[in-house]
Nucleic acid binder design. Sequence first.
DNA 1: TCAATTTAGTGGTATATGCCACTAAATATA
DNA 2: TATATTTAGTGGCATATACCACTAAATTGA
Lengths: 162, 162
Amino acid sequence: MDETPMGIWDFCTNSALKRASRQLGQLYEDVLAPSGLRGTQFSLLSQISHSKNASLRTLANLLVMDLSALGHTLKPLIRDGYVELVPDVSDRRVKRVQLTPLGQKKQQEATDLWRKAQARFDNALGKPEADALRRALNGLSEASFAEAFTRASDTTGPGESG
Amino acid sequence: MDETPMGIWDFCTNSALKRASRQLGQLYEDVLAPSGLRGTQFSLLSQISHSKNASLRTLANLLVMDLSALGHTLKPLIRDGYVELVPDVSDRRVKRVQLTPLGQKKQQEATDLWRKAQARFDNALGKPEADALRRALNGLSEASFAEAFTRASDTTGPGESG
DNA sequence: TCAATTTAGTGGTATATGCCACTAAATATA
DNA sequence: TATATTTAGTGGCATATACCACTAAATTGA
């Protein structure tokens, strides 16, 4: 065999993460398809549902997403009548994000499909492994991890100083 | 506390994966920035370097990426002179992807930066955990996982029937 | 050999996501 | 109070990524 099936993802966590994200994204989206929602849109609607009356900024921080990216991503959902932005009265810069009744219905409908996808995932990987993976991923998403990463000078050698 | 900091990512592996991907993407890209390459572009150049003379289709499969998405993503790299597509002589449908000399140089330059990012990641998470995470993610990216997922009827109850 | 099917790529369109520049509004400071 | 700074959001531009329709070339089958 002269064709080594080695990839950058075997070394690079970032590449591995993106590749896995594409794969799992496809898998979940296929299941969510009947709802007409993309995977990201389902995540968004669900989080908006959880974080009632959050501002765009708050939501962006929770989702570890750029504020303007969130704004852009919400546009199709606003256009389709699932989400609305309500200006805050006390701070006129702020806009609160909320689901419309239609959005709530759509989110619930999609949740039924999502449960299937999640069940399949847990079955395919094993429940304990799935839970562990989710925890690990959520650890990476915490601000404290970003700080640890940024702070980490590459002390690859033996003996950790400082 | 009436503000439960609970998120969809606490339940949904897909949401957790995308969120972590955004976070890690930012972290890696900050380190790669001096090279002028985005994270995805570095992954791409590296994989092209590994998979010498691969066709677009082969590369797309390896990367678990849609063929046309790969084509689109390569465009900036071709425009900037890092990558070129060479038509295959025996099968005139096929285009082989390869780095230009400039692309090789850029890839090597970026690899030096990447090593820093990777070292920081390993430091922040711990080497064994990082390796385990990479393995888990690469498992999700395998075709066999997609098959297991698709095949998995949601046998959430006890007793798995054939 | 010729038609039907499959395979590789391209281009258009839409969503996902980030950066930067800009506006508006709130807050801090002199 | 008037100015400086910070904060929230918007809009433009670029890349990332998917789907669909289409072309071209190879393969299959009659």
